[in-house]
């Protein structure tokens, strides 16, 4: 049987949505409450890793999700640099907070900080998940 026992699979199915939503909450409220891109990215990577550990996958789908994780990591990095360069192009300073600041304590405030949080969370989450996938693929490597 692939993966773990039925109890673990059922509990994972129930819990994983909550973990994911908690991660998204941590990311989006990073400029108002404790948390931010780093913490939320690691939580989302943890949700994927939990799913991976509970259900198990074959070698083929592992390779596929590894490619997807690499693509997402590149997207996150490019988004972060893109925000920085758009500050340079629009206002003349790298990493300038060029968006309007908005009302304090509201979700849409603080200029580029929420966008940076999202970019970093994609980057960190996909990076850690691809690290984990590479380490999980070692059972095929060790068998050689």
């Amino acid at each position: 049987m692939k993966g773990m026992s039925l109890i673990v699979k059922t509990i994972t199915n129930i819990v994983i949505g909550f973990i994911f939503i908690y991660g998204v909450y941590i990311i989006l409220h990073g400029h108002l409450t404790p948390g931010g891109g780093f913490a939320g990215g690691v939580i989302i990577a943890g949700a994927f890793i939990l799913r991976f550990l509970a259900f198990g996958k074959g070698a083929k789908s592992e390779k596929k999700s590894s490619t997807t994780a690499s693509i997402f990591e590149s997207i996150g990095g490019l988004l972060f640099v893109g925000i920085a360069i758009s500050g340079l192009l629009l206002a003349g300073t790298f990493f300038l907070n060029f968006l309007p600041k908005g009302e304090p304590f509201y979700l849409l405030s603080a200029g580029i900080i929420p966008l940076c949080n999202i970019a970093i969370s994609i980057k960190v989450g996909a990076g850690l998940f691809s690290i984990f996938l590479a380490l999980a693929a070692m059972k095929y490597v060790m068998e050689d």
Binding site: V42, L128, I131
Partner: peptide, 24 residues
């Protein structure tokens, strides 16, 4: 420290990968 903690996880994973290669 916030960034350093996450980086530490990445470097630890790299170190363990090299250790695994040595073991295999």
């Amino acid at each position: 420290v916030l960034t350093a903690i996450v980086i530490a996880l990445g470097t630890t994973a790299l170190m363990l990968t090299i250790i695994l290669r040595i073991y295999s």
